[in-house]
């Protein structure tokens, strides 16, 4: 890839992205219910299309719709909005967990998502074993992880506890390990969802320093928080979501 396009293409680009939850489908949990619902739908279709249409719109729920924005490289962008406005859904689409119902998007570079710290941790394994496992979740090889493990352990301040099962960790230790691991995979794009409130004050300061150093190294950050102060401190620009749509113009 040419260097010029590397600089000009945005790190993240969304075009008319929408995610629809089919509420009528989600209620079906057993085979019997599915057969009944299929039969009623068939009956409805036989009686006429109009009724079917009204049913669909009543039961469909768009978590996000018509979301279009782009994030230039090295920019920290904040996503704001009330609960249920679609922030987390947007992040899930970008991190590739949720496939959109409509629209398209491009994500360039290695992504690391701090959506829920330590999501893949197994309580019966030790901290060290979980680091190896968690790093491979991000696609790192064993050798690459071995090179980073000391740094991760030091950052999480868990030197004395790293060979203990994480079942015995406090929630703060758990989250510290998760943060240290997720930010050490050296992503080009970091997705942060409400996780900076982990640990005590000194550790929070370390997290903030690490985020700052990401920005300095021209990494892109997508940041979701309910804390207006945190958004103001970190973000170059913000996008406000409301009821699944963008409420503020794309800067």
């Amino acid at each position: 890839m040419a260097t010029s396009s590397l600089l000009t293409t945005p790190a993240v680009e969304l075009k008319g992205v929408g995610v629809r939850y089919q509420l009528n489908l989600e209620k079906v949990f057993s085979l019997k219910e599915l057969l009944v619902s299929k039969a009623t739908r068939l009956g409805r279709q036989l009686r006429g299309r109009e009724q079917q249409k009204t049913r669909r719109t009543a039961d469909d729920f768009w978590a996000i719709r018509d979301i279009s924005f782009s994030v230039p490289r090295g920019v920290c962008i904040g996503l704001t909005g009330r609960n249920g406005s679609g922030k987390s859904t947007t992040l899930k689409v970008i991190s590739g967990v949720l496939h959109p119902t409509e629209g398209e998007l491009w994500v360039r570079g290695r992504v690391s998502a701090l959506i829920e710290l330590g999501a893949g941790f197994n309580p019966d394994l030790t901290g060290r074993e979980n680091i190896y496992f968690g790093a491979s979740v991000s696609g790192l090889s064993r050798a690459e992880t071995a090179k980073r493990i000391d740094r991760i352990v030091d950052f999480a301040e868990l030197r004395d506890f790293i060979d203990m099962p994480v079942r015995n960790y406090s929630s703060g230790m758990y989250a510290r390990l998760g943060f240290a691991l997720a930010t050490d995979v050296d992503p080009d794009l970091l997705i942060v969802d409400e996780v900076l409130s982990v640990g005590d004050a000194p550790f929070q300061q370390k997290c903030k320093d690490r985020m700052e150093s990401f920005k300095k190294r021209n990494k892109t950050i997508l940041f979701v928080s309910h804390d207006p102060q945190a958004i103001q401190d970190f973000c170059d620009t913000t996008i406000e979501l409301k009821d699944g749509r963008i409420n503020s113009p794309n800067p």
Binding site: L6, G96, H99, E102, G103, L105, G109, G139
Partner: peptide
């Protein structure tokens, strides 16, 4: 993913609702 490949060409993910 190895470091060489990221240095040569960064991964581009294109997702389209189809």
């Amino acid at each position: 993913m190895n470091p060489e490949s990221t240095a040569a060409a960064e991964p581009v993910v294109h997702i389209r609702a189809d």
